[in-house]
Design a protein around this nucleic acid. Sequence first.
DNA 1: GTGAAAGCGCTAACAA
DNA 2: TTGTTAGCGCTTTCAC
Lengths: 336, 336
Amino acid sequence: MGPRNPTISDVAERAGVSVPTVSRVLTGAARVSPQKRELVEAAIAELNFRPSSAARALVSRKSRTIAVIAGNTSRYGYAETIRGVEIAARAEGYTVMIIVVESADEDEVDRAVSVVLTQTLAGVVVLKFDPPGVAALKQIPAALPVVALSGTRETGVRQAVLDEAAAAEELTDYLLGLGHRTVHHVRVPPSRRVDGRTTGWKRALTTAGAPVPPVHDATWDPKSGIAIGRDLAADPSVTAVFCGNDEIAMGVMRGISEAGLRVPQDISVAGFDDHPLAELWSPPLTTVEQDFSGLGGRGFQLLLEGVDGTGDRRYSSERPRLILRDSTAPPSPVRG
Amino acid sequence: MGPRNPTISDVAERAGVSVPTVSRVLTGAARVSPQKRELVEAAIAELNFRPSSAARALVSRKSRTIAVIAGNTSRYGYAETIRGVEIAARAEGYTVMIIVVESADEDEVDRAVSVVLTQTLAGVVVLKFDPPGVAALKQIPAALPVVALSGTRETGVRQAVLDEAAAAEELTDYLLGLGHRTVHHVRVPPSRRVDGRTTGWKRALTTAGAPVPPVHDATWDPKSGIAIGRDLAADPSVTAVFCGNDEIAMGVMRGISEAGLRVPQDISVAGFDDHPLAELWSPPLTTVEQDFSGLGGRGFQLLLEGVDGTGDRRYSSERPRLILRDSTAPPSPVRG
DNA sequence: GTGAAAGCGCTAACAA
DNA sequence: TTGTTAGCGCTTTCAC
């Protein structure tokens, strides 16, 4: 096994003080004389002592660890959001635990919530982007500080939001303003019956008195956009398409070009998220910039305020920004 | 505050047994009579009791939490590797803590190692893809079970590897076999002085007796490939380019097309990683499939074997697979 | 198979 | 300002 880690009593002994005095130096909970403080600090450095967070959590019922509950960790929006949470947490001396909930199944959600209950946590950030996130959020005990992160304000919990509906509406308006009779929509898997992107799209069409065509459903796999793109290209009334994210838009564009049509000359295609590759795509993608890492950061701040009672905000919203590039243009005179 | 969480003594009282008996049911450490077991299980369910992992960690000096130390969490290879670790860990009932080390600065690495020492961990997985990862790995105390994940076998620690050098060599050989006189290389930020991709590329050229042109250095930002692509296009002797990852390859291809040349007719471009969008790109990218999530999973398994003494493997390697698509072709007769 | 007793490493409450 | 005492919630001896 080797020599065990030094404990607080090793430090106390070496510094010639009592254990609580070492604790006071560690936590800053009470004043300690400069002389003793120095002795303690020297002992800590010599022994390379690190306080056990398990012991601390046990006795103080507090911890500097938060959990992020997410349905996924590696897709762009998720990964960036988690990164934003982690950066903000790290800046405040907090550590992040990842809890993945792959489905909204009761067993799966229970398991995740069990982990949360087992751990001593300062709080929980839930990525409410999908059904697993929504289901997990519901099961978190009310006693635990929680912040939900999502694209639409929905529940009573503290939450940070990217106002997707407003951005989707703006993007759809822009396409209509270009002269398109209507805008078709390819939806990514929604978190509930509706999602903000679809809502904003529909609102823009309705407001403008434009027809609302049936929604096309894609999976998270960008390739699922290819067949949809081909279908869209086969319908001569289609001149503009708004896709639920950039990756699907890329798939759709590939399908359109496989069908022999060009973007944007024959069909305009817009995405959502401003994926790092959106600008590099040919043609560069018109899209909506979502500050996911900012969302994560705001979410963590909101959580902290909830934990220490600072601030009374329960809600933080931000409007994603339209990014106009070359994948959208006025409609072709021959189509439509 | 509300009512505090139920403890093991609440369960014991309710079930009419002693605390250690509840503990035995929880851990399975010793046999308990069926009757008592049933009583205990009923009490646990009624109270919705979850054992405190802090208390467990404190007394048993064990835990079911591992830490993943990484220089980044959201770039494709990192995110997928972490996802692989998490999936494998979850399957075995382990929870994952994320520790990000943004630079190899002493302070930054110290902070990360401090977190590791503070926590009671079953073990640590280090993503040794970059200098922060390399630096962090060095500082981890020997007493803690550790597995390193990387693209090149290097140190004495337990490690899971994707043999990048072998794959890069195979890819370069393929390009030479197509008739290219040599292959140029755009390198992504390496983990040390050398990285496997560059090593394999150089080995293939040397073995074939082909000239070894100077390496072009890109950043992690795909856009950094654009200027490099333009430069490469300006040099008429360039007919084939091997890029350190797919995103850089996409940037390079954009630079080449901005210079008025075509891929693969004028210049062949190959990437590395098989990014989800590589297949959708125009033209679809020739690349090397890296099973990052598999790497993460193998890494976790190796760690577990180290923790419980099962298995004596200290090393797990896998050869990434060449994916031939349309961005590579024989050299143009007019260039080169 | 079961319970009583001890104690993990730390912080909180109280006295001095 | 400092030390003494108690105890967080659990597992681990050790008797029985």
